[in-house]
């Protein structure tokens, strides 16, 4: 008798926990759906990617763009974002997508896409954008971080309430940085001599082509962008091999897609916050150059809208 009552009480508690999570999820979804994905009518260029574009493309200068890049975002998340943003903002006609040596390599899967910490932190933000199959993918790959992400839903609700939610651009934004870690980052980079075998990530490749195909279908011009990278990084033999692989991938698979490669763009050390991210000053210089290049080469008509 006692044990039955105990099991029922335990189940009731479990249901209460689940209920709080479900209610939080519904609340978060409703809250961000009110105006969450809506951007200004003049903003027709969407910028997506990871920390490279997050720190490098200043959308306050690039006035008709909106930068929703987010640190450690894989193409999986960029795909979710472009679908929803286009749905809510039909004026979007150009996508600037981060495309660099690391984005398609399998060795980065565990570091970014399937990293438990990233799954946990991104899950609460992106759940609203996910389908059941997306959810199933993570649950199958990393169940614990997914559970942790679900349990963090109520915390996110509190954050939304306290900080005004989507105004914080949890989906991603341009992040001006004043950090100066270049010297120590170079030191660390030189010490890191891990040899890795270069292989494409099948998951990321598929997500990448999903983005390209989606854009084609919806008349969105895709411009692939790689942001400036410090010369020390580029002088590394292994990194160069990664770039070679990227270029051969682009040449063979992406016929007709514009690729603006600024990896080797010459920019002073004072513009870097670390070996592969620009600081505020660097972002300003780079963004101005990017706007000029797009405009002068007419890669997209969207630039002068």
């Amino acid at each position: 008798m006692g044990i039955k009552k105990f099991v029922i009480t335990s189940l009731k508690f479990l249901i209460a926990v689940i209920l709080v999570c479900v209610l939080s999820f519904l609340f978060n979804s409703a809250y961000v759906n009110i105006r969450g994905y809506e951007i200004e009518p003049h903003q027709n260029i969407l910028i997506l990617g990871d920390s490279h574009t997050e720190y490098a493309v200043d959308d306050t200068i690039f006035t008709n763009s909106v930068n929703l890049s987010h640190s450690a975002d894989s193409y999986f998340y960029s795909y979710l974002k472009v679908k929803r943003m286009k749905q809510e903002n039909p004026q979007i006609d150009t996508l600037l997508l981060a495309f660099s040596n690391h984005n398609l390599l399998s060795q980065y899967d565990e570091r970014w896409l399937l990293n438990p910490l990233h799954i946990k932190s991104k899950f609460r933000i992106y759940t609203d954008l996910m389908s059941f199959s997306d959810f199933g993918f993570f649950l199958k790959s990393k169940p614990m971080p997914v559970l942790q992400g679900i349990m963090e839903m109520p915390k996110y609700s509190i954050k939304l309430l306290l900080k005004g939610g989507i105004k914080e651009r949890d989906l991603g934004s341009f992040k001006p940085s004043e950090r100066n870690k270049l010297a120590e980052n170079i030191e660390r980079f030189k010490k890191d001599s891990n040899k890795r075998t270069l292989k494409y990530s099948e998951i990321e490749k598929s997500n990448f082509f999903n983005i390209i195909n989606f854009c084609k279908k919806n008349d969105i011009t895709v411009i692939l962008v790689s942001t400036p990278i410090h010369k020390v990084y580029l002088s590394n033999e292994d990194k160069m091999k990664e770039f070679e692989l990227l270029y051969s991938f682009y040449d063979s698979k992406l016929n007709g897609v514009t690729f603006l490669d600024y990896s080797f763009y010459n920019i002073p050390d004072s513009c870097y916050q670390d070996i592969n991210h620009l600081n505020r000053k660097g972002a300003q210089k780079f963004t101005e150059q990017l706007i000029n290049d797009i405009r002068s080469n007419s890669y997209t008509s969207a630039i002068d809208k």
């Binding site: 508690f13 209460a16 926990v17 709080v20 942790q148 349990m151 963090e152 109520p154 915390k155």
Partner: peptide, 14 residues
């Protein structure tokens, strides 16, 4: 009591 237990449970994750 239950609200307190729930708060402690969620705090483990938060």
């Amino acid at each position: 009591r239950w609200a307190f237990y729930l708060a402690v449970t969620f705090s483990l994750f938060w």
